[in-house]
């Protein structure tokens, strides 16, 4: 006979913290903070040439494209269509909220249709 999965014990354990798990989580938190803070720290403490400043200037757009391109390439017509909807709404209204709502409604709609 099988051992009953201990549902009551599970709820009792909901707030328990395994010390090893806590250490792993805190280590994850530390490396994440280093990653989040490190880039700007470096830029603040290293003297930048004009050329490097020019490179830094294109970073925001380049990062945005680097996030998007593989994401969209991995998607299908539904995602591409919805992305086009976001571009169109953003272009016309310049409202990020409208663009997001249109995009999410668009992707659900296109996925149902296509």
């Amino acid at each position: 006979m099988a051992i009953e999965p201990s549902a009551p014990a599970l709820y009792g354990d909901a707030l328990s913290l395994d010390p090893v798990v806590v250490v792993v989580i805190l280590a994850m938190a530390v490396v994440t903070v280093v990653a989040k803070v490190g880039g700007l720290w470096l830029v603040r403490h290293v003297e930048l040439s004009d050329r490097l400043e020019a490179g830094l200037d294109v970073l925001p757009g380049a990062v945005v494209i680097a996030v998007l391109a593989p994401e969209l390439a991995a998607g299908g017509p539904a995602e591409w269509g919805a992305a086009a909807v976001v571009v169109a709404v953003m272009w016309r209204t310049e409202s990020i909220l409208l663009a997001l709502v249109a995009g999410v409604v668009g992707v659900v709609g296109f996925r149902a249709l296509l």
């Binding site: 757009g61 998007l68 994401e71 969209l72 953003m90 990020i96 992707v107």
Partner: peptide, 24 residues
């Protein structure tokens, strides 16, 4: 619910705003 598309949509919207003509 299309939640997976929100991040993409935020970045698409931002790309529209960051577009600065041919220099980009």
């Amino acid at each position: 619910y299309g939640f997976d598309f929100i991040l993409t949509a935020v970045f698409v919207a931002l790309a529209v705003e960051l577009w600065d003509g041919t220099s980009t």
